[in-house]
C-alpha cells in the first residue's frame, strides 16, 4: 500500500490528467465487450461467458485482414463484421438450445466453446503470439495536455468508442428495433404475440454483441499481443463491469467500465499489489449493497 503516493497524485494536475485518461482508455475498450455481455444478459438472460473468445476472434480476424490489406480501418471492420456473423451462428446453433435452462447449463456450453475456440485459434493462426504493429498514421509522439501525456492512438480509441457508445445508446432508446429489444427483455411472449419473430430478435442481439466485441478486438489489436486464451482476462473484467453497472443496462456498462478503469489506474498507484483484488472487492460490495447493480432495475 502506498497511500502517500496516491495522495500526492490526486493533488498534482499532471498525474490526475494522465491517470484519468489512462482510466478512460482501459474503461472504454472494456465497455465495448461489457456492453455486449450486458445486452445479451438483459434481453436473453444468458450469461455469455464465451464473450472473451468473441473479442479474441475479433483481434485475429482483424489481424488477418490487416496482413492482407494493410489497412487498419478495413481490419477493424473485418473484426467487427466477422464476429457479428459468428455471434449469429453461435446463438442459432448452440445458445438457442439452452434458453430457459439452468444458468450452469449455459455456463457449461460457454465453457465448451471457450475450450474449442482457443484450440481452433492455435491450429489456424499458430501457437506463437502475434503482434499487430502500430499503423503508420498513429506513429506519432504523444500529446501533452495540462501536464499529462496522452498518446494519439489512445485519443483516437477514446473518440471512436465514445461514438460507438453514443450510437448504441441511440439504437436502444430511439429506434423501433431498440423498442422491440427492450420489450423482448421484459416480456418475450408479448413480443411474439405481436407477430415479431423473436428468434430473429435474439439472433440480432448476439450479432450486436459480437459486433461490439469484434470491434473491440480489432481496435485494440495494435497494442495487444494476440494469443489463444487472450479473451480470459477481458471476460472476467467485463463481467465485473456488468455486475457493477447492472446486468442489461448499457448506461450501467459504461459507468461500470469507467469505474473499473479509474480503479485500476489510481489503484496501481495506491495499491500496486492488490488492484485485481480491489476490483473483485468492489464487485462484492456492489452485490451486497445493491445486488441489481448501480443502474440495474430491481428484480
Amino acid at each position: 500500500m502506498d497511500l502517500a503516493a496516491l495522495a500526492s497524485c490526486l493533488t498534482a494536475t499532471s498525474c490526475l490528467v494522465t491517470q484519468t485518461t489512462s482510466g478512460f482508455i482501459i474503461g472504454m475498450l472494456l465497455f465495448l465487450v461489457a456492453a455486449g455481455v450486458s445486452l445479451i444478459f438483459g434481453v436473453l438472460k444468458v450469461v455469455n461467458f464465451a464473450h472473451g473468445s468473441f473479442y479474441m476472434l475479433g483481434a485475429y480476424f482483424a489481424y488477418t485482414a490487416y496482413v492482407l490489406t494493410g489497412n487498419y480501418f478495413v481490419a477493424v471492420v473485418a473484426g467487427g463484421v466477422g464476429v457479428g456473423i459468428f455471434g449469429y451462428l453461435f446463438e442459432r446453433v448452440l445458445v438457442s438450445r439452452v434458453y430457459g435452462s439452468a444458468v450452469l447449463m449455459q455456463l457449461l456450453v460457454c465453457y465448451g466453446v471457450i475450450l474449442i475456440l482457443d484450440d481452433v485459434v492455435k491450429i489456424v493462426w499458430g501457437a506463437e503470439f502475434k503482434s499487430f504493429g502500430m499503423p503508420d498514421m498513429f506513429q506519432q509522439l504523444p500529446i501533452l495536455f495540462a501536464g499529462g501525456v496522452v498518446p494519439v492512438f489512445y485519443l483516437f480509441l477514446i473518440i471512436v468508442t465514445l461514438i460507438i457508445a453514443g450510437l448504441l445508446g441511440l439504437l436502444i432508446t430511439k429506434t423501433r428495433y431498440g423498442k422491440i429489444v427492450r420489450a423482448a427483455a421484459v416480456n418475450p411472449s408479448m413480443v411474439s404475440a405481436l407477430g415479431i419473430n423473436t428468434g430473429l430478435v435474439y439472433g440480432s442481439v448476439f450479432v450486436l454483441g459480437g459486433l461490439l466485441a469484434g470491434l473491440a478486438g480489432g481496435l485494440a489489436a495494435p497494442v495487444r499481443s494476440l494469443t489463444a486464451g487472450m479473451g480470459l482476462s477481458v471476460v472476467v473484467e467485463s463481467f465485473i463491469v456488468t455486475v457493477i453497472g447492472g446486468m442489461g443496462s448499457v448506461a450501467g456498462a459504461l459507468a461500470g467500465s469507467l469505474l473499473i478503469g479509474l480503479v485500476r489506474s489510481f489503484g496501481s498507484i495506491g495499491f500496486p499489489l492488490f488492484t485485481e483484488g480491489l476490483m473483485f472487492l468492489l464487485m462484492a460490495v456492489v452485490l451486497v449493497v445493491k445486488p441489481s447493480g448501480l443502474f440495474g432495475r430491481e428484480a
Partner: peptide, 19 residues
C-alpha cells in the same frame, strides 16, 4: 509497479512510470 501476469493492458503502469 506490478501488473498482473497476462494482463492485457499496461496503461496504468506506464503512466505511473512516466509520472
Amino acid at each position: 509497479s506490478w501488473p498482473k501476469l497476462f494482463q492485457a493492458d499496461y496503461t496504468e503502469q506506464l503512466t505511473k512510470i512516466l509520472q
